[in-house]
Design a protein around this nucleic acid. Structure first.
Lengths: 213, 213
DNA sequence: CTAATTTAAAATGTATACATTTTTTGTCAA
DNA sequence: TTGACAAAAAATGTATACATTTTAAATTAG
C-alpha cells in the first residue's frame, strides 16, 4: 500500500487508542522517526487528518491531538440531528429492497460477534446508517455526514459501553428497517431522531460523569 | 509569504476566474511548471483546495476543476437553509452591539464601492453573515458553514448579477440587522431563511437558463 | 483490422539535502 | 533577579533526485 495511506490509517488508529495523549503536539520529525518514514509522508497524512478533525491546528504551534468534551459531543449530536433525518427523508423513497437487505446483513454482522473491537463495531454502525442515506443523491450532504461521523468516531474507540450497541440500539436499528420496508418515511425519520438523541445522551452522560471524577 | 499559501490563493482565484477550464485535469507537474514552484508546494496547495471543494478527486485520474450545475447550487442552498438559521438562533441572544456595529460597517463597505470585483464583494458578504453567526459558540457548526461558503463562492466570481447584492439583498441585510438589534430572534431567523432562499433562487434560475442555452 | 501484450513516456510517491523560520537557550546589562 | 538581546537548536518549508506506479503508444499475434 501507499505509505501515505498506511501512515494515515496507523496514525488515526493510534490516536483513537490514545497512544498519543490528548493535547500533545505531534511534530513532523517526531512522527517521521517514530514510524520510520520520510517527513513528506508525514506531512500528507497530517494534512488529511487535520481536515478530518483527528488533529487540530494551533497557529504556528504545530498540530495537536484533540481532547474530548461533553460540549463537543453535544454539538456533534445537534448537527447529526439536523442533517441525518433530512438525508433519510430524501433517501427513503428511493431505497431499494436490495439495499434494505444489505443493511440487514450489516446489522447481523454487527451483533453476531460479541467480541468485535469497538472501532470495528462503530465502523459497521456507520456503514449501516450511511447505506440508508446514500440514495438521497446529495453529494455534499453525504460528505458533511461522513465528516461528522469521523468526529463522532473519535469518541467511540474510547469506551465500548458508551453507545450500548448490543442493547436498545440493536432494537432501534431493527425497527428502523421495518419502518423503511413499510414505506413509512415520516415514522422512520422520527425514530432516527430518537435513535441519535438516545446514543448522544448516553455518550454525553458518560463524559460528564468522567469530567466530575 | 509562504509559497504554499501564495499558490493556494493564486490557484483558487485562477479557478474562480475560469483560467483553468471546468473538467480539466490539473497535474502536479503542469502546475509546478506554470507557477514556477516545486511539486511539493503544488501538492500542499492541491490537497487544501481538494478538501475545500475547489478541486475534485477522480480516483487515480488526478484532480479536476469542478463544474457548475443547478442541482449542486440547489443542494448547497438546502444545506445553508438547514444550518444558517440554526446558527443565527443560537448566536442572536449573545450578539453584542459592538458586533452589530461591525456588521453595519461591513455592509456599508460592501455597498459603497460600486466597482468592487465580484469575489471581494462575495467575501464581504460572507464576513457579514459569519460575524452574525460567530457568537453561537459551536466550532463544528461554524466550520461546516465556512466549508459551505467556500463551495458557494465558487459560483460567485462567476457572474456578478446572479446575486443582486446591490438590490433586494442590500435591503434584506439592513432589515436583518434591525431585527437583531431589537432582539427579535424569531423574525430574524425567518428573514434569514427568506434571504438565503431568495439568493439561491436567483442563482439557480441563472444556471438553468444557461443550461438551456 | 482488432485486440492483446510489451515498451516507452509521463505522472506521482518518496527520500534526501538544503533554506528559512520558529523556539529555545544562554548571556549580559540594568 | 529580571528582562532584553544574541546565539544555538529544532522544526518546518522547499527544491532536487530517485523510485514506483500509471498511462499512453507502439508492436505484434490472431
Amino acid at each position: 500500500m501507499l505509505k501515505k495511506q498506511a501512515l494515515y490509517q496507523q496514525l488515526k488508529q493510534d490516536i483513537q487508542l490514545q497512544h498519543w495523549a490528548a493535547g500533545q503536539v505531534l511534530t513532523q520529525q517526531q512522527l517521521a522517526q517514530h514510524y520510520a518514514v520520510s517527513r513528506i509522508v508525514v506531512r500528507d497524512a497530517q494534512q488529511a487528518l487535520l481536515s478530518e478533525g483527528w488533529l487540530t491546528a494551533h497557529g504556528k504551534a504545530g498540530m495537536r491531538v484533540p481532547g474530548f468534551s461533553a460540549a463537543e459531543a453535544e454539538e456533534l449530536a445537534m448537527l447529526r440531528l439536523q442533517l441525518e433525518p433530512l438525508a433519510l427523508k430524501l433517501a427513503a423513497p428511493k431505497l431499494s429492497y436490495s439495499q434494505l437487505g444489505q443493511a440487514e446483513d450489516l446489522l447481523q454482522q454487527m451483533h453476531r460477534d460479541k467480541a468485535l473491537p469497538p472501532y470495528q463495531r462503530g465502523e459497521l454502525n456507520w456503514q449501516f446508517h450511511r447505506l440508508l442515506y446514500q440514495p438521497c443523491d446529495k453529494p455534499h450532504l453525504l460528505q458533511l455526514l461522513d465528516q461528522l461521523h469521523q468526529q463522532v468516531s473519535r469518541y467511540l474507540g474510547y469506551q465500548e459501553h458508551a453507545l450500548d450497541y448490543a442493547g436498545t440500539s440493536a432494537d432501534e436499528h431493527q425497527q428502523l428497517l421495518a419502518l423503511l420496508r413499510s414505506k413509512d418515511t415520516t415514522a422512520a425519520c422520527a425514530l432516527l431522531t430518537a435513535h441519535i438523541s438516545h446514543a448522544a445522551t448516553l455518550l454525553v452522560q458518560y463524559l460528564k460523569n468522567k469530567q466530575d471524577a
